[in-house]
C-alpha cells in the first residue's frame, strides 16, 4: 500500500529530522511506529501523508510513485490517505461548524451531495449528535473535536489511514472509542493503518506489528516487535 524508501527530511536549513528511513505498510496491515517525542516520527508521517516534501528518498502509494507533495500531489493520491493529527484544536478550521468540518473533504472534491449521507452516518458512528454538529470547534471538548476529525478523515473512504499521535491528548475512554471506530472502518473497507505514537501499550494492543524507532532520528537500531 505504502512504501517509503530512503526518506531523508527536515525543515528549512536545519539538520534533517528523518535520515534514510524506509518503511512499508501492506494492504490492510496495521503498522505502529513507536518512538519518543521529537524523534522525527511525525515528520515521517507527514511525508507519508504527502504533506511534506522529503529531501531525498521515494514514496510509493498503491504501486504508483508519488511525484509531488501537498498541492502537487494528484488529488486521487491525496484522498487515498486519511490523516488524523495529534491536536484536534489545530487540525480543525476554527470557523467551521462540526457538520461542515466533517463534510469538508467531500465539498473540496465536489462530492458534497453524494457523500452527505455518509457524512451523517460517520458523525453518528462517532457519537456526535445533531446539537454538537451545529457547534464550532471552540464550543466542544478536545475529545468531541477529535471524533469529528476522525470522521472527516474517513469520509472519502481512504485506503490508508495515518494517525499521528491521535489519542495523545485524550482520556482512556475516548482513546478506546476512537480506536474502535478506526478498527470498525478497517474491517469494513480493508484499509491499511499507520499509527504513530509513543504509547507502547496502546500501539501494541492496536496494531498488527510495531516498529520501534530510537531517539536519534536514525532507524538503524529499529527493531520489529511483532505482537501476538
Amino acid at each position: 500500500m505504502l512504501e517509503l524508501t530512503g526518506i531523508t527530511a527536515g525543515y528549512d536549513r536545519g539538520r534533517p529530522v528523518v535520515r534514510d528511513m524506509s518503511l512499508a505498510v501492506a494492504d490492510g496491515e496495521a503498522l505502529g511506529l513507536l518512538g519518543p517525542s521529537g524523534c522525527g516520527k511525525s515528520t515521517l508521517a507527514r511525508v507519508a501523508a504527502l504533506l511534506h516534501t522529503p529531501w531525498a528518498g521515494s514514496v510509493r502509494l498503491a504501486g504508483e510513485t508519488v511525484t509531488g507533495h501537498r498541492f502537487r500531489a494528484p488529488r486521487h493520491q491525496r484522498t487515498a490517505i486519511g490523516v488524523v493529527f495529534q491536536q484536534p484544536r489545530l487540525a480543525a478550521d476554527p470557523r467551521l461548524r462540526l457538520r461542515d468540518l466533517i463534510a469538508e473533504p467531500a465539498r473540496a472534491t465536489g462530492r458534497g451531495r453524494e457523500l452527505a449521507d455518509r457524512a451523517a452516518a460517520l458523525a453518528d458512528a462517532a457519537g456526535l449528535g445533531a446539537e454538537l454538529l451545529r457547534r464550532r470547534p471552540h464550543e466542544v471538548s478536545d475529545g468531541q473535536l477529535q471524533r469529528a476529525c476522525l470522521a472527516r478523515a474517513l469520509l472519502l473512504r481512504p485506503r490508508l489511514l495515518i494517525c499521528d499521535e491521535m489519542t495523545a491528548m485524550l482520556d482512556a475512554s475516548t482513546t478506546a472509542a476512537l480506536v474502535a471506530l478506526v478498527e470498525d472502518y478497517r474491517k469494513e473497507q480493508g484499509a491499511a493503518l499507520l499509527a504513530v505514537g509513543h504509547d507502547r501499550v496502546l500501539l501494541g494492543r492496536w496494531c498488527d506489528s510495531v516498529r520501534e524507532w530510537d531517539g536519534d532520528g536514525n532507524p538503524a537500531g529499529a527493531e520489529l516487535l511483532t505482537q501476538e
Binding site: G127, L132, T174, T175, A176, V179, A180, V201, R205
Partner: peptide, 21 residues
C-alpha cells in the same frame, strides 16, 4: 470502573456514549 477498563492494558473497551453537555 469504565474509565479504568478502557485502558489498553485492561479491556480497551470504551464507555458507550458521550458525556452530557
Amino acid at each position: 470502573a469504565g474509565l479504568l477498563a478502557a485502558l489498553p492494558e485492561r479491556d480497551f473497551t470504551p464507555i458507550p456514549g458521550l458525556p452530557p453537555e
